[in-house]
Amino acid sequence: MTKPIIAVDMDDTICHLVKRAIYHNNISFPSHPLQYEDMVHWDTTHLRHPDSTHEVFYGRPGLFEELELYDEYVVEEMRKLNEAYDLIIVTAAEPKTVLEKWNWLQRHMPFIRLEQFITCKRKNLLAFDLLIDDGPHNLVPAFESGRKVICIPHPWNRQQLEHYGFPQMSSWKDAKALIDELLHNTSARI
Rank of each mutant, 00 (worst) to 15 (best):
E68T: 15
T45N: 12
L34R: 07
K96P: 05
E83R: 13
R79K: 14
N82H: 10
N26K: 05
Q116H: 00
N103E: 03
E37T: 11
V98Y: 02
A92M: 12
Y85W: 12
A93G: 07
E76S: 15
E72N: 13
E77N: 07
I118L: 00
P61Q: 09
Y58L: 13
T119K: 02
I88H: 08
L81W: 04
V75C: 06
I88G: 11
L99Q: 15
E72G: 15
E65L: 03
W102N: 00
V98M: 13
E72Y: 10
F111T: 01
V90Q: 00
K80L: 13
E65Y: 07
N82W: 09
K96V: 14
L99A: 12
P33M: 07
I112D: 00
I88R: 12
S52I: 02
N103W: 01
N103Q: 12
T91M: 00
P50R: 08
W102K: 02
G59S: 07
E66A: 10
H32N: 10
T97H: 09
M78G: 03
E115P: 00
I88P: 03
E37G: 06
L67D: 06
L67R: 11
S52F: 08
E37P: 08
E100N: 09
N25I: 04
F29D: 08
F57Q: 01
Y73F: 15
S52K: 06
G59Y: 10
P95V: 06
W104D: 03
Q116W: 02
H108A: 00
R48G: 03
L87Q: 09
F29M: 11
R113I: 01
M39D: 06
P110S: 13
E68Q: 15
F29C: 11
V75F: 07
Y36G: 07
W104G: 04
V56L: 02
I89V: 13
E76A: 14
E115H: 03
H49A: 14
P110H: 08
V98H: 11
L99S: 12
E83L: 11
A93R: 01
K96G: 04
N103V: 06
P33F: 04
E77R: 06
K101Q: 06
E100L: 05
E94W: 13
L81M: 12
H108V: 05
F64R: 10
F57C: 02
F64C: 04
H32F: 11
N25M: 03
V40H: 12
G62A: 14
P95D: 01
S28T: 05
V98A: 08
R48Y: 09
E72R: 12
K80Q: 13
H54F: 14
K80T: 14
K80E: 09
E72S: 12
I89M: 15
I112T: 09
Y73P: 05
P30G: 10
S28D: 14
K80A: 07
E65I: 11
E55V: 14
T45R: 12
R107S: 07
E115D: 14
E94M: 07
H108R: 11
E83M: 06
L114N: 03
I27W: 03
D71A: 14
L114I: 09
